[in-house]
Structures are given as C-alpha cells and as structure tokens.
C-alpha cells in the first residue's frame, strides 16, 4: 500500500500569484498541485501525494504558530507518513517557511520531512541541524534535478534507511554514532601508517582550520577612498532587530549610518555574549569607531565613510558560517565600490 505524503508549497508555485499574493491564507487541497505532479511521478507509485498545503510566504512568516498547527492537523487528518516542502531554491521566506513546518512536523507529528533549497537560502542555517535539506540550484531552473533527489531521499526515509552523501542533502553538521568494522585502536594505527607514508586518509573528527588569503594592494588615494566598517563585536541598533545570537551566530546584520555621527547608549548596543557588555553598551564607538571616522571624513583624510555597516557576533561562530558571512559582506561592499574595510573585533 503506497506511503501517504503531504506536500507544502507557497502561493507562487501553486500558481496563485507572486509577491502580490504573498499574504494568501493557508489552504489545503486534496491531491497534487504545481510541482507536486512531478514529485508524485518521481515517487513512482511507492508513495502518493494525498494533499497539498498552500500558504503565502508573508502569511507563513506572520502567523507561524497558526501555520504550523494547520500543517500538523493536515498531516494527521490525511495520516501522512512524510511531509515534503518546497523546493524553495533561493527564495528566502519560502525556504524559511519550508524549514519551519518541516522541523515542526518532525518534532510534533513524529514523521520524517524532506525539503530542498539553495545552500545560501537563510532557511538552511536555521534548520539544517533538524532535518534533511536537498541542495538545489538557485532558481526554479533547477526543478529537474531537485524533484528526483527529493523523491529519492523521501523514499529512503520512509523505508527507514540512513541517508548517505549520494542523496545530495546539505551537510547538517550533526554527529551520529556508528559501529565501524574495526576497533578505534586499529583505525588509529592504520591512520598513523598512512600519515607516515604521506598517503591520503580521512580524519574521523575534523578540527577547524583557517585558510589564508592573499593580501590586497595598498590603497593609493585615501583622500577619495570609501571606507567601510565591519565588526564581529556585535554592535547593532538598540533591540538587536535581526536577533543575532549572543553565541554561535547564524546571521549578520546590515545597518545604515546615514545621519549618524556618533554611536550612543540610547540607540546602539552590543549583542555579543563573549565579553562584559557594560562598556560597549555605554558607548558602542569603543568597538565600532564611527565618531572618529566621521571626523576623518569631514577633514577630508578619507573620501567617505560607507553608509552601511555590517555586524555579527564572533563568539563560538562556526567556521562555515563565518566564511559565508565574509563572502556575502565582501561581495556587497565590492558592488558598492568600497575601496577598503576596517574590521574590528573584541
């Protein structure tokens, strides 16, 4: 008897509309809708999509409890054995919604869930620890590869198999125990012999390693250069609008400096959990030197202080996240023709 699957998609993939319909209220329809058809075919009759949940991305973001509860009820009502969500490609809110409902259902309904999105979708870092996310291209052009991969992974989970790298999911960074063929001592001596002979070996626990980058040439004309401020010291507007975590940060913030000549206790604070916050909260210039750079800008020593500053919290941040933040921020500064960056850290 075929497994029963419920599929979650947003307003766009349900053909209701684009951004204009992002407030579309959650509805449940029998059978397949949109990409559900291709997914159903890819499941080759071993599983069938019994219902499709359609929800606008804004509606999902604004009413998360209600949406999760509705998805939970739909899964129970249709006795779902698994939830499929997406694929969301590089659509940020859609990816986050897919991750939200998938991890909620796994925890509260106790059935597996599979979603799929581009590796830089914000939903990845939030939910990759909880569930399997198939890696897709950054646009719907990748549907042809995403659908069969989702189906294959879904069937593996339904059959209780342990997914492997071939299923193409994004590494979750979760350590799982297993019984190897040989005891740890034997594996150690074997690894040592390979290391001695210079043969390749795979460590069982990778320790963080930092790569090196080529130094950039000196700034020739500082008087007309645009300088940007970036910090891992956690300086953010009061209230930490982007909820950057005090440790193991999963995101960074981008904030405007227009009209700001000095950081003040009433408007700026630190979100960093790794040091005594008293002094940075009194005067955030002690971590992000906005006041001095504004003076230098007025005196013509530098061309311009870039109007945006970027901040994250460097406290137990994973190397992978830190590298991704750096690449994204670097690209944005390059696009904004910034010549040089002052990086401050605590």
């Amino acid at each position: 008897m075929a497994y029963r699957v419920v599929h979650y998609i947003n307003q766009f993939f349900a053909g209701i509309g684009g951004e204009d319909k992002a407030d579309h209220e959650l509805e449940v329809r029998e059978g397949v809708v949109g990409p559900g058809l291709a997914l159903a075919n890819a499941l080759k009759g071993e599983a069938e999509i019994v219902a499709t949940i359609i929800c606008g991305d804004n509606f999902a973001a604004m009413h998360s409890e209600q949406v999760c509860a509705a998805v939970e009820n739909a899964c129970k009502q249709y006795q779902a054995d698994l939830l499929l969500a997406g694929p969301a490609f590089n659509a940020g809110r859609y990816g986050t919604a897919c991750g939200m409902v998938s991890s909620f259902v796994q925890k509260n309904v106790g059935i597996p869930a599979v979603t799929a999105m581009y590796k830089e979708n914000p939903g990845v870092d939030i939910y990759k620890k909880d569930l399997y996310i198939v890696e897709t291209g950054d646009s719907a052009r990748g549907m042809g590869t995403a659908v069969p991969a989702m189906a294959k992974l879904a069937l593996a989970l339904l059959k209780g198999e342990q997914p492997s790298k071939e299923h193409g999911y994004i590494e979750r960074g979760v350590r799982v125990n297993t019984f190897y063929d040989t005891c740890g001592a034997e594996r150690a001596v074997t690894m040592l012999l390979k290391k001695i002979k210079g043969e390749p070996f795979t460590t069982e626990y990778p320790m963080p390693v930092f790569d090196r980058v080529e130094p950039r040439p000196a700034v020739k004309d500082m008087k007309s250069a645009t300088i940007a401020l970036v910090t891992s010291g956690g300086i953010v507007p009061k209230g930490n609008p982007d909820h950057i975590a005090a440790s193991s940060a999963q995101n960074y913030g981008e904030y405007s400096l227009s009209g700001i000549n000095d950081l003040t206790a009433d408007k700026h604070q630190t979100a960093h959990g790794g040091y005594d916050q008293t002094y940075a909260n009194q005067d955030a210039d002690r971590v992000l030197p906005v006041d001095v750079l504004r003076d230098l800008e007025k005196e013509g020593v530098i061309g311009k202080l870039h109007e945006m500053w970027y901040a994250t919290v460097g406290n137990g941040t994973s190397v992978a996240n830190a590298r991704r933040f750096g690449q994204e921020i670097g690209q944005k500064l390059k696009d904004a023709q910034v010549q040089a960056v002052i990086l401050t850290s605590t």
Partner: peptide, 21 residues
C-alpha cells in the same frame, strides 16, 4: 551512553565511532 561502562573508551577498545551527517 555516558553512563554505560566503557561505552566511548578513548583507547579505542570498542568499534564505536561517529561521523557527520
């Protein structure tokens, strides 16, 4: 399994290990 005698013995006495998914 921390409470089980010798479960994760660090001389590599058993075959238990871990990997990243």
């Amino acid at each position: 399994i921390q409470a089980i005698l010798g479960a994760t013995n660090e001389l590599g006495f058993t075959r238990l290990g871990a990997y990243t998914i």
